[in-house]
Simulated scan of single mutants.
Amino acid sequence: MASKMVIRQPQPVMVTQDSDEWGSGICDCTQDMSECCFAFWCLPCFACSTSKKYGQCLCLPLLDVFSGLISPVTMSMRVSMRERYGIKDTICRDCVYSTFCVPCSWCQMSREMRRRKIPIVLISSKTT
């Protein structure tokens, strides 16, 4: 009878931060003052860079300029982010934040992307 040696290669380990809540509140902009100032003083630039980091078109947030009272791109990004990360919230709240708290909303989305970034740690094994 022949013996067979099976060697398993190490698999990537994913560390996730599963939560169905936003990682920070809408008014927690002061957690990162440089980001807060960037969003307050140059919201179009901040929104475009955040959109690009999220994997969307760089200039997508500039379309909010052509809208009326509600910022449709900001609201769509919030809804998309909630769906991607499994955050429980309401479309009504997204609408209110996207209308009256646009800089704070973009800051919250940026913080959430940093918080939810999933690192992959490769584990190596050495045979002795």
Rank of each mutant, 00 (worst) to 15 (best):
L62H: 00
I91C: 13
W22Y: 04
I26F: 03
S19D: 11
R114A: 14
S80R: 13
V15W: 01
T16A: 11
C107E: 11
V121H: 07
S71Q: 08
Q108E: 03
F66W: 08
T30Q: 13
I123D: 05
M14R: 15
M14W: 08
F100H: 03
E21R: 13
G86T: 01
D28M: 07
S3T: 13
Q11N: 09
M5Q: 13
K52G: 00
Y85L: 04
D32R: 06
P44G: 02
R111A: 09
V6A: 08
L69C: 12
D32G: 02
V6C: 04
F38E: 06
P61K: 03
D94F: 04
C27M: 15
C101Y: 11
I87S: 04
E35P: 00
F38K: 07
I91D: 14
S110A: 15
P103T: 01
S67T: 04
I7G: 05
M5A: 10
C29M: 07
V65Y: 02
S3R: 13
C36P: 02
G23D: 04
C104L: 08
Q31S: 12
Q17E: 12
D28W: 06
S98Y: 06
T30N: 13
D18S: 13
M81V: 10
S98M: 02
C104Y: 06
R84V: 07
S34G: 09
R78C: 10
Q56S: 10
C95Q: 03
T90Y: 00
C29D: 07
Q108I: 02
C104F: 07
T99W: 03
D32N: 15
T50G: 05
M77C: 09
E21T: 14
K88E: 11
F38M: 09
K126M: 11
F38I: 00
Q108L: 09
S125C: 12
M77H: 12
V121K: 07
S3Y: 10
S67A: 15
V73H: 02
R111H: 15
I123F: 07
C27A: 13
C37S: 14
M81D: 06
Q17R: 15
C57K: 03
Q11D: 08
I87C: 03
C29I: 05
I70E: 08
E112L: 06
T128S: 14
K117H: 14
S49M: 10
T50K: 06
T99S: 07
G68P: 02
W106Q: 00
V102N: 05
C36V: 02
M81I: 11
S19C: 09
L60P: 03
T128G: 09
C42W: 14
P119G: 01
R82M: 15
C92G: 12
M75D: 00
Q31V: 08
I118L: 09
I91V: 15
V65C: 07
P61R: 01
P72I: 03
L122K: 04
D64G: 01
R93S: 07
V65G: 05
V73S: 00
Y97R: 08
C92S: 12
P12H: 00
